[in-house]
Computed example of a mutant assay.
Amino acid sequence: MSLRDKTIVELEEIEEELNEQEDEHGYSNFSMKIDVYKEMYRKLSLLVRQHNEDVQSSLDYVKRKLIYCLIHYGTYLKTEYQKDDYLATRCLEEALKYDKTNPLAAYRLGFLSYKFNDYTKAIQYFRNALENDQYHKQHLYQLNEQQQLNAHLYLTNCALHIAKETYEKMNELPLAKTQEIPKQELSPLFRSLIDNEKYLLEHAFYKLNNVERTTCSKAECERLISRPPHDTLLVYFGDRTIVTVFNGEEATLTQDQGNMLSYFLLNSSEAVPATRHDFSVVDTVIPNTYITNVSRLRRKLIQHGIPSMIQTKRYQNETGYYYDGSYPFYIMYRSDEEIEYR
């Protein structure tokens, strides 16, 4: 029986089964979860159109979970450990179908279009991102200041790339060789293009610890990973994978594990440990699920030769965890992206 033939109650049961499998195996079938949420959204939408207003809150809740999965996990659907730009594009496009004013989805689509040299499409996405960010101030997925700045730089570069390509094509036309046409002085604009590209490259990543946050290039991040300082934990959200490195030992993390470790490093302490409520973005995290996920993260780090730095403490009647400060650390991730739990 296909999902389309299931009732809403049966779909909720499938969602619960997927959550239980996550607890048991340590990873989620987000491809299946997205399909379940899509079908739940379709059925609930029909009920709302039939003036069944009692289900509107359920529809809004399912919509939030669906968009969350499409934006945050769409890029990892094929594997928990490796990003896929083309898959991410499809999922972000779907997110905009359910939420046309989502600034972050439009921004990331603009970034991916620019990356693939589709400057016309990138202009459309960056404009939408900035307009949505301006006119929908309370949106859950607002752009940060760096993303706002980058969007303007990308927009400028898209226009310059298109002008450059158009000018070059115009000079190749037969009439351009026989008729006197206006000579475009584009050199200053090309210099602006180069300067903007240089800025975007040099500020492509954040490098931060519990004291400061600076920007740097991807090359600088990779140099640090290849020659890590002694007794220093590095967490690198690369373009393909998320890795943590310590004294030559390396472990590949899932997106959830990378986000969780980063949150512990940046936002927890013995006085205020992180509880499951700190990770309840669109849904309540079950206590056992939280404890299991942290245990898996700690076990993975230890198995890869990374010493225990995350300690346990009871806090406000909840199991909490905190970074004990035993080693310095750096977290590196693209300034175009948001770490989920910051």
Rank of each mutant, 00 (worst) to 15 (best):
I306Q: 04
F190D: 09
F30C: 08
Y41W: 13
Q255S: 09
P307Y: 00
E340G: 07
E80A: 05
N259H: 04
E250R: 08
E172L: 14
E20L: 14
Y125R: 00
G305I: 04
R334F: 08
L112A: 07
P174S: 07
D60W: 15
A204E: 07
S187W: 11
T156R: 15
L253I: 02
E93Q: 06
N19L: 15
A106D: 11
C69Q: 10
L140W: 09
I181T: 14
D133Y: 03
V285Q: 07
T275V: 14
V36R: 05
K137W: 08
Y114A: 02
A274N: 05
D85W: 00
L3G: 10
L149Q: 07
F190Y: 15
Q311W: 11
Y206G: 06
L201P: 02
Y199W: 14
P182W: 07
R127T: 00
V281R: 15
E340W: 02
P328I: 02
Q303F: 08
L104C: 04
A95T: 05
A251I: 02
V243A: 10
Y41V: 05
T289W: 12
Y333E: 11
E15T: 13
E10S: 12
L143P: 06
E250H: 08
E80H: 01
H203M: 03
Y321D: 09
E202V: 06
S217T: 03
T275E: 09
N29W: 14
E250V: 15
T252D: 10
V282P: 03
N157I: 02
R276F: 11
S295H: 10
P328T: 00
L87P: 07
Y321I: 03
C221N: 01
N128L: 12
L186R: 11
A129S: 12
E145N: 07
L193N: 09
I34G: 02
E197Q: 10
T156D: 14
L104T: 11
I8V: 10
D133E: 13
N267L: 13
R64Y: 04
K121D: 02
A251M: 04
L77Q: 05
N288E: 15
T254V: 09
R108S: 03
I310R: 04
S269K: 09
Q82K: 07
L77K: 03
V62F: 01
A95W: 02
D35V: 11
F190P: 06
R276G: 12
Y290C: 11
I194D: 14
M1S: 14
L160C: 12
F246A: 06
K137V: 12
G74H: 04
I286A: 09
M260C: 02
G238N: 11
H152V: 09
L130D: 03
E16N: 14
N52H: 13
T101C: 12
Y125E: 04
E53Q: 12
Y125V: 02
Y135P: 06
Y27W: 14
I291V: 14
M260I: 10
D99Y: 04
I306H: 00
R90T: 00
K43G: 11
L233M: 08
S28Q: 13
L297Q: 03
F246K: 03
N293M: 10
I71P: 01
L234F: 01
Y327F: 15
Y81V: 04
T214L: 15
